[in-house]
């Protein structure tokens, strides 16, 4: 794990790019009530939000656990800890049909192996579908999470392997080819409103829906983001630099990470 330190600021607190992504994702959950969570960085971020600024955040996992309050980070979305601490445990048909499709989730987290400029996602194959170079796990819950959660936050690394001009497979629709496509496809949620990478934050342009670099992580230069993006990256006029993880965020994060996969 590469350790970087903050570029600005007097205190030199060590943190990794993943820590920065998690802290940014946790901060982005402020103000939301119900969050659909996947395993990995999203689960860590959602639980960091719950243990810092949003104690009442309702975490919903695909396994049917609604209002889970895990004291240790789960390794899978169906860990017993999630069911034992949940307000309710419902079936998988219920989770998708009544809770996700029913429009009851404020924000969903997604990751992907590839993302394009309209935040469409690939988690199916790298290479040709029939003869893939890499067979990825597949769609899982992603297409409907992206379709029906009111908003979606995407967590991906920003490099030329992940950011691509053309997806090898479109597993999940972000904005299709532009501003009209979500309506055309009957997708009722707003789509990906924030993409968090290891370099910064991107948001869809209000008019074109093309992803636009809106903030950089501390110590990251805009050129790094441009180099990591195979298309001519759009940049917000008011590009900002976000705050590094605070000592509180980091200490709570370390405490959470120490529980990963226990039991």
């Amino acid at each position: 794990m590469t350790t970087t330190s903050t570029a600005r600021g007097e205190r030199s607190v060590d943190y990794t790019p993943d820590d920065m992504m998690i802290a940014a994702a946790a901060r982005a959950l402020r103000g939301y009530r119900v969050c659909f969570v996947g395993i990995g960085l999203p689960s860590t971020a959602a639980n960091l939000a719950r243990t810092t600024h949003s104690p009442d955040l309702v975490l919903v996992y695909e396994s049917g656990t609604i209002g889970a309050k895990p004291s240790r980070l789960p390794l899978s979305i169906g860990d017993g800890e999630l069911a034992e601490t949940a307000d309710a445990v419902v079936s998988v048909p219920e989770i998708f049909n009544y809770w996700v499709q029913g429009g009851r989730i404020d924000v969903g987290f997604l990751g992907a192996a590839q993302i394009d400029r309209f935040a469409n996602l690939n988690s199916t194959v790298i290479g040709d579908y029939e003869h893939p170079t890499v067979r990825l796990p597949g769609a899982g819950g992603a297409p409907e999470i992206a379709a029906s959660c009111r908003e979606v936050i995407v967590l991906v690394r920003q490099n030329r392997r992940t950011f691509v001009e053309q997806l090898d497979f479109r597993t999940t629709v972000g904005y299709g080819e532009g501003p009209e496509d979500r309506r055309r496809f009957g997708l009722r949620g707003a789509g990906p409103t924030l993409v968090i990478t290891d370099l910064g934050l991107l948001r869809p342009d209000p008019a074109t829906r093309e992803l636009t670099m809106s903030a950089l992580h501390p110590g990251v230069e805009l050129d790094q983001a441009r180099d990591a993006t195979p298309w001519d990256l759009r940049v917000a006029a008011d590009l900002t630099t976000i705050d590094p993880p605070s000592e509180e965020e980091l200490s709570r994060l370390r405490a959470l990470q120490a529980t990963q996969g226990q039991g």
Binding site: V92, P93, F96, N97, Q101, T124, Y129, A139, P143, E144, A147, S148, F169, R170, T171, T172, V173, G176, D181, R184, F185, G186, L187, R188
Partner: peptide
């Protein structure tokens, strides 16, 4: 896939959902 099971369990020929449009699936 969940709705395929639901349809099977319900004795219906198909299930219905909002999804798949716009994807390569």
């Amino acid at each position: 896939l969940t709705n395929r099971y639901v349809a099977g369990a319900s004795g219906l020929p198909f299930g219905v959902l909002r999804g798949y449009f716009g994807t390569d699936l």
